[in-house]
Design a protein around this nucleic acid. Structure first.
Length: 274
DNA sequence: CCGACAACCTGTGAGC
DNA sequence: TGCTCACAGGTTGTCG
């Protein structure tokens, strides 16, 4: 599920309830997700007060002062808050229990496919291999047409899978890559290194607008992070092309086409995107 | 460095 | 209804 907007919405949904609270205990019900979980007798973060929750790309970093819990939701992960004891379901793999017994709040991680991750990073987190190789944040001022032109220079690969490479740009997954390229009028098969500066400027603007709108859409239902099924707030946007193979383009009415790029489905309008 | 591919894992929906 | 197959919004690692 989660691309940058979903992760950011999650961060905004859980942070107000958790920051400043003490982590009372942690329950890990499986040995590993993508990587082994921190199964120590008493992990270093237990008993510590949560200082902040940051996002970097699709990662969340929970700062406990003496280190960070790094969380990635993979393809199928979700986080939600519980204020009462609710039995863990089949794929509820991790509970982080915050606060005292009479006033506790549980952060529960569900992840059916277990492509997600939860790692303890003692001390300085940014040197970690998973974080130090990450690309630019698309919602910063540094991400502009000139930066993108430089980054794509000489690349023969198609623009769409290149946009999804988190070592270049973080946070753009399969949905928002297709959506941004449609909004920018760029063919997803276009060679990344051959797109003009003007068109890249349009692409940068549309990436920012697409991600921002998706965050706003999710943000409108933040209350659902408590007592929800964990899937709320994500899917309410109307997509221009994603998942609309064969349906009429919302701009020109011609059928949306689907193709495969790097094992992933791409959706586009051959009339509006050239 | 680039680009193509398999791998990790479970659930779901389409088609027979 | 039940089976099989392809595919699912991510990322790493390996290979040429």
């Amino acid at each position: 599920m989660p691309e940058l907007p979903e992760v950011e919405v999650t961060r905004c949904g859980i942070a107000p309830a958790l920051v400043g609270r003490r982590l009372a205990s942690a329950d890990f019900r499986v040995p590993a997700l993508r990587y082994p979980l921190p199964h120590a007798e008493r992990p270093a973060f237990v008993g510590r007060q949560l200082q902040s929750i940051q996002r970097r790309g699709k990662y969340l970093l929970l700062d406990f002062g003496n280190g960070h819990l790094l969380v990635h939701l993979g393809m199928s992960g979700s986080l939600r808050l519980l204020t009462a004891d609710m039995a863990a379901q089949k794929h509820d793999h991790v509970d982080l229990v915050f606060g005292a017994d009479h006033d506790k709040i549980i952060l529960r991680l569900r992840d059916p496919r277990r492509f997600g991750a939860l790692l303890w990073l003692p001390g300085e987190p940014w040197a970690h291999p998973l974080l130090k190789t990450l690309g630019i944040e698309p919602l910063t001022e540094d991400f502009d047409a000139e930066w993108l032109k430089r980054t794509l220079a000489g690349l023969k690969a198609a623009i769409k899978p290149t946009l999804m490479d988190s070592h270049r740009i973080v946070g753009i997954g399969n949905i928002y890559a297709s959506e941004s390229l449609f909004r920018a009028g760029i063919d997803p098969r276009a060679a990344a290194g051959k797109i003009s500066l003007n068109r890249l400027a349009r692409l940068v603007a549309e990436i920012k607008a697409t991600l921002t709108a998706a965050i706003a859409a999710g943000g409108s239902s933040l209350r659902d992070f408590i007592h929800s099924d964990g899937s709320s707030g994500y899917f309410q946007q109307q997509y221009f092309v994603y998942g609309r193979s064969g349906e009429p383009c919302r701009r020109c009415g011609k059928p949306i086409r689907e193709l495969r790029q790097g094992q992933r489905a791409t959706f586009f309008c051959a009339h509006c995107q050239r």
